[in-house]
Structure formats: C-alpha cells, structure tokens
Simulated scan of single mutants.
Amino acid sequence: MGCDGGTIPKRHELVKGPRKIEKVDKNAELVAQWYYCTLSQEKLSRPIVACELGRLYNKDAIIEFLLDKSSEKAVLEAASHIKSIKNVIELNLTDNPAWTGDKGNTKGDKYDDIQSARFICPVVGLEMNGRHRFCFLRNCGCVFSERALKEIKTETCHKCAVPFQEDDVIVLNGTKEDVEVLKTRMEDRRLKSKLGKKPKKPKAAETIVKSDVVEDSPGPSNVNTGKDATSINSGEKRNIAFCKGTAVEGSTLPASGKDGKNAPGPLKRPATNKEEKSEAYKSIFTSHSSAKRSKDQSSNWITHTAYYF
C-alpha cells in the first residue's frame, strides 16, 4: 500500500468525506454590496440609483440594460423586476469629508480601511459601509441611517423637507425578511397604479364617435354667407350666358329622353343676324379673295428627298 519512497497514505487522503460549506467572508460581502454595482459589478459612481428592493446600481448600467433589446440578453435576478427607468430612484447622497478613496493607495502597498466609506448619514454622521443599516426615501431619494429616522421621528425629510410616509422608507441592502416586505409593497404599489389608470379607448371606437359627432353637428359647408350666395348667383348667371352664346352660334345640345324624341334640334342663327358684312370683316377669313395666292406667289414644294422641282 505504500507509494514511491516508502510513504504510507493516511485515511483522509484516500476516503473523501462530505464537502465543507464554504463560508463567504463577511467583509468581502459587505464591500460587494455597498461599493459595487449589483448589475454590472463595477464600482459605484454617481449618478447612483436604487430599486424598490433596496439594491444599489449605477444609472448607466440600468440604462444599458433597458436599451438592450437583443434576445441574447441575460436577465439577471437582481434586475428582473426593473421594467423601466421609473422603477429606480436616483439617490441624494452625502459625501464623507474623511474619505480619500484610492488616492492614498496608488502603489497598492498600503492598508485599505474598510470601515471608511465614501458616503455618510447627514444627521448622525455614520458611515455607509454596511456596518449600520441605511434607508432612503422613495419620494426624494435622500439617504439616512435607520438610527437617525428612529431617534428623530418626523413626517418630513431631514434634508429637503419633503413629506413622506412609513411605506416610502426603503432599507438599503436589507436582510431576506426586509426584501420580502419590500417586494409585497412594490407589487401592491404597481397594482394600485394599474387600477388607477383610465382605460384607453380603442382607435376604431374613437373614429366612430368622431364621425357621429361630425354628422350631428352642422358643418360650415351647410351655412352659406352673403358673399357665398352672391358668388353662386354670379356663377349661375355666367353659365346661363355661356349657354345662350353657344345656342346663338348654332351648337347642338345632348339628347334627352328615350330615342331622342324630346331632344331639341340644331339651333339656327336668326334671320336678323344674316346681314351683309363689310369687306374689312370678310378680309379676316382665309376664304376671302385677298387671302388666296397665285402659283407665282406660292412657294415651291419640298419632297422627302429635299430636291426642288
């Protein structure tokens, strides 16, 4: 049973027992929740938004997630409840004056203080590093520690004086019980907003209603003003005069009735108009003798071969 070199294996090396549950480092978990975006896993940078379940995101990551319409988009559990930009609230955070960030550790050879956070509570001064419970107000987005809201009870925001209710307080990165409570509130709120909206009429019904209104109401075309009446009368007079002029010239009217029995015949010029015309009047027409030319005055004919004859 020995191996090379005369070594003897032990029991724990040959028999594999049940796997031990890997414990997540608490400090690493707090850093991932409070310093990094839940969706893109990048460092939180302003503008920072939070959903109705109390998770922190970068606003750019949320916008990219909503604009991505491809079928290959992986819908993560952390963003499955976000359907539009209205489902997130931009946070009004207070900077920590004692926070230096990554400026003091440019070479990576210095100790990073996890207790130091970028943002603090503006009332109590607690740092938002995950050691203390923080909340934000859904109406204005201001962030406070839970201790400040409990010790100083008020119905308006401590920072911007916007009124709020108890349901408007959302815990950031809360426990499973907190998430369940926030989820039920979110569903109730969305259901009320859907029921509160007025049902939209279909387009077909709107067109039918509009057409009925137009038919019932007298339109401007049915009412004629004095100017319209005068223009119509003048037009009728012109038509009558035109018909008379064509009748005088000897034009024929279309037949009316069956077989043209009732149709009037060609209108002849009255005898009064048959008067002898002057020579000047007759010289206008080509049938007059002055318009005729002799063979000497007429030009030569040209054939398609362009030869003169």
Rank of each mutant, 00 (worst) to 15 (best):
H158D: 02
S211C: 13
K227Q: 12
N224V: 09
E177S: 08
V181N: 09
N222F: 14
D188G: 14
N239Y: 03
V162H: 02
V209W: 13
M186I: 01
A241M: 15
G219T: 15
K198E: 10
D212P: 01
S234V: 03
R190P: 01
D188C: 15
P202T: 08
P199V: 05
G226P: 03
H158N: 03
I170L: 09
N224L: 14
P218T: 06
T175W: 09
E180I: 02
D212N: 06
L182Y: 03
V181D: 09
S193M: 11
S217W: 12
A205G: 00
K150S: 08
E215A: 15
E155C: 09
S231T: 13
K176E: 07
P202C: 06
G219V: 14
S256Q: 09
E180Q: 04
I152P: 07
F242E: 11
C243W: 03
K176D: 05
A204G: 06
N173D: 00
R189L: 00
S211I: 07
S231I: 13
L195M: 13
D178L: 03
N233V: 09
V179P: 04
A247T: 04
V223L: 05
T230N: 14
N173L: 01
R190T: 10
G219D: 15
V162D: 00
S211L: 14
K150E: 10
S251F: 11
L191T: 00
P218G: 04
L149C: 03
K210V: 01
C243A: 11
V214Q: 11
V214F: 11
S221P: 04
K201M: 05
K203F: 08
K150R: 13
